[in-house]
Design a protein around this nucleic acid. Structure first.
Lengths: 196, 196
DNA sequence: AACTTAGACTAACGTTTGTTAGTTTCAGAT
DNA sequence: ATCTGAAACTAACAAACGTTAGTCTAAGTT
């Protein structure tokens, strides 16, 4: 008797994916066990495999989902005929709202992607490199057009990307200060530093 | 026959600690195995225990070493009778040079401290909270004295601390652009954003 | 020459890991 | 009432884990 695997979005699969994201975020991918995940879903470990194929598939799904959103966003930003500073602001605002709306997933994809196994690890590394390059090109454009200071664009990208990483404490803070206020704080600090 | 443990700084223990930092950085603490560490030191896994007491002790040492340096630095900064902007610049420059000089250790302490076990995990969480508070107080001082813009000081701290997290790619970049240039890029971007 | 000891080794331990096999359950369709 | 199939279960697997016990080696001290 062969079992069919749910390829489409069953409700349970979604629950597992979400629980996994939360667990991976709290413990780290490697330290999180399938038995722990199972119990957080309210099921035995073996039962998970009625819905998923492997632990690594869960991480893969999380990482590639996030990557896809960021890439399709920068696709759009590049298309627009705007000044570099507008493009940069759009990128930053997208980063912020992604973090607020997809907290665990974005966090996990950022800190745990190294645990992907080949060939996806290499491919993912390439995706990240590519994204940074395109981000950097937008900044360089701003520098060339005298909109921005003459800083090293790669350094700037890294600062921007990593500034976004503090999601952990954010979630606590976002209840205290308003979401929009947070966003503006961010934009102020990061954008004013680069403006000429 | 009871074996004495090397409590003082044997050369081998230092080698193990450094290899551990490098390995923990590359694979993550949980995914890194003692057998892997041993082989990177050129020894069998069991032999490591002639020099160390446990895997978790290695992480503990790394994290607390780093914490001690950061705390004693902010101790000094607080003592100085200077404007907030000078204090902030000193903090930022210290962060940067720590990352450049103690690459792996700082990276590991920042990303893997959650893998500490109790009671050190709680204690370390407290140390981090305390550091952020003191950092935040310095920024708030600058706001009160009208040196800085009226941003949320906690948000600013998080941006600053996390901007520092991009050490990974830095090490590659620091060979391309000069160390001092990197530092100045950083200071420009982060400090100009907050200045009034 | 005999003794000591640091530090390597091999072998093994008890756990925990991700995962598979095979069985049971039970709601919905016939 | 019977059949079906998804999804739970129990039991077990082999592999990998951190760690311990006990032994061997070789350099240094007496």
């Amino acid at each position: 008797m062969v079992k069919k695997k749910n390829t489409k979005g069953s409700a349970k699969k979604e629950i597992i994916k979400n629980s996994a994201a939360k667990l991976f975020k709290e413990k780290g991918y490697s330290a999180a066990s399938m038995r722990e995940l199972a119990s957080s879903v309210g099921v035995e470990a073996a039962s998970l495999y009625n819905h998923i194929n492997s632990k690594s598939e869960l991480l893969h799904t999380i990482c590639y989902n996030v990557a896809e959103r960021f890439i399709s966003n920068i696709d759009e930003v590049e298309k627009q005929e705007e000044k570099a500073i507008v493009k940069l602001e759009r990128l930053l605002r997208f980063h912020i709202s992604e973090m607020l709306d997809h907290y665990e997933e974005v966090y996990v994809s950022d800190r745990e992607w190294r645990q992907l196994d080949e060939p996806y690890l290499d491919e993912y590394r390439e995706l990240r490199r590519d994204y940074r390059k395109r981000f950097s090109a937008i900044i360089q454009l701003g520098i060339d057009e005298k909109e921005f200071k003459e800083i090293d664009s790669n350094t700037a990208v890294m600062i921007f990307l990593n500034a976004m990483g503090a999601i952990d404490q954010w979630h606590r803070i976002v209840h205290k200060i308003e979401r929009l206020a947070l966003e503006d704080n961010f934009i102020t600090l990061l954008l004013e530093g680069i403006k000429k």
